[in-house]
């Protein structure tokens, strides 16, 4: 586990992975877009609007996948006090929030033609909305302390509390939804999705995941540099009472 605590080693590993993940991201997003927009059939019920699914559903998967990763990383940060895990958690949270926002926006754009309204308190949409707030809380808490280590640790506890709560929230929202939702609104229950639709869906999902890996490596590198900067500034301040350096907040 602590083999990668050494930033130099991690940076080497990251530099080795980066070209591959970026290549996979570009290729599968390009192929995914081609199949999503040209080489896939329109749905017999939803018509061409089904194409929104190819960004909406992968975005929802990413929202959940990144939150799970965030909780796992936070557990590593708390249990093993792994210094890189703190940085990784801080680096991935905003990306997860961005995918969650994308899922909400595209869900709304899909809901307008399908349900006739921009927002319904559908169980899944509502759960994703709550997930979005969990992300925002995590980001805000991480940045709320003068000492970044303290912020990272507090945010890690919050991520784990959140991941314990996510199934409970999901269950309670489903329960609430069955109590209140009129039966007329049914989500597309796809028992057997057409392979021609599955292909762009999977390609987009792979593309999003590879994109996430590349961005994460990039952002962790930024966080490592930021930490180095803080150390250097601290030492500089200790050696000679230099004027305060602007832009400490990162």
């Amino acid at each position: 586990m602590h083999r990668f605590a050494n930033p130099a080693r991690f940076l080497r590993l990251g530099a080795a992975i980066m070209p591959w993940s970026t290549g996979v991201a570009v290729l599968s997003l390009a192929a995914g877009l081609y199949f999503a927009l040209f080489a896939s059939p329109a749905d017999y019920q939803q018509g061409e609007s089904v194409r929104i699914m190819y960004v909406h559903v992968p975005a929802a998967w990413m929202a959940l996948f990144i939150y799970t990763s965030l909780a796992a990383t936070s557990a590593i940060a708390l249990v093993w006090k792994h210094p890189l895990a703190d940085l990784a958690a801080k680096a991935m949270a905003p990306v997860g929030a961005a995918f969650t926002a994308l899922c909400l926006v595209t869900g709304s754009l899909w809901g307008q033609p399908m349900w006739g309204t921009w927002w319904v308190w559908d169980a899944r949409l509502t759960s994703v909305l709550v997930l979005f707030f969990l992300y925002l809380g995590h980001i805000a808490l991480n940045n709320a302390f003068d000492d970044p280590t303290r912020g990272a640790r507090a945010a890690a506890v919050l991520a784990i509390v959140g991941v314990v709560n996510v199934p409970i929230i999901k269950f309670s929202v489903d329960w609430w939804n069955t109590l209140h939702q009129p039966a007329s609104i049914t989500r597309l229950a796809a028992p057997a999705i057409d392979p021609a639709m599955l292909r762009p869906l999977l390609l987009m999902a792979i593309g999003f995941t590879a994109y996430f890996v590349s961005i994460l490596l990039l952002r962790i590198r930024t966080e490592i540099l930021a930490r180095k900067l803080r150390t250097l500034r601290y030492m500089q301040g200790a050696e000679a009472p230099a004027p305060a350096v602007a832009g400490e907040r990162i």
Binding site: L33, L37, E48, S49, R51, I52, V55, H56, A59, L102, V105, T106, L109, W110, Q112, P113
Partner: peptide
């Protein structure tokens, strides 16, 4: 609805 979705992505 479709194009704004892809634009947002």
């Amino acid at each position: 609805y479709v194009w704004p979705s892809y634009a947002a992505a």
